[in-house]
Design a protein around this nucleic acid. Structure first.
Lengths: 87, 87
DNA sequence: CCGGCTCATTGTAATATTGTAATATTTGGA
DNA sequence: TCCAAATATTACAATATTACAATGAGCCGG
């Protein structure tokens, strides 16, 4: 087991906003505006968290005109979230 | 789902040393000296990480004379680690 | 009671994370 | 081309985390 890599993954999930983002983006993809409205946080903060999730390979994005739609594409993260929501 | 609580849990696992500690302490309980030798880190550092794991309800301890034996008692964490080691 | 062994706590410097405002970029329509 | 909406990036202050040495505290054998 690669502790650096795995702990890095856990660290990204170790923030309430990102955890909520990930939970929502597993259910359905969503653009930045919707996410920031849903979570009630500023646009730059939303964008930064999403950038982090993207860089860690947790979410992927799809451009739809001027909008950017994010969704979770990481299977390991999906399995981890399943454990969290059941427990 | 309590995002604060769950992200807090993930954050604790978001450190390579603690992740390795938890993985080991699921398999068998261990005292501080053994842990620090195994991981090759100073005693105070070891003790601090263990204190954090204890405060977050991830590990429990048992005094055995002058030694302190730690082990993982948190089922949710055990399930999360199972996902990490399989994936 | 003194010694050493085991572990916990504290102090502190270095580093990382976070939140926000300000600014830049990209895109599509008039 | 010019504008506005949507998103990304940057800069920076505030805060949190981290590692380690030093010190403190508890337990036992002699």
């Amino acid at each position: 087991m690669d502790y650096e890599k795995m702990s890095d993954l856990m660290k990204v999930l170790g923030h309430p906003v990102r955890l909520q983002m990930v939970e929502g983006l597993i259910k359905h993809e969503c653009n930045v505006n919707k996410i920031m409205e849903k979570l009630g946080i500023p646009q730059s903060t939303t964008s930064q968290h999403l950038a982090l999730l993207k860089n860690k390979g947790i979410v992927s994005l799809r451009k739809e005109g001027v909008k950017t739609c994010y969704c979770v594409t990481n299977d390991l993260v999906k399995r981890l979230m399943a454990v969290l929501t059941k427990g």
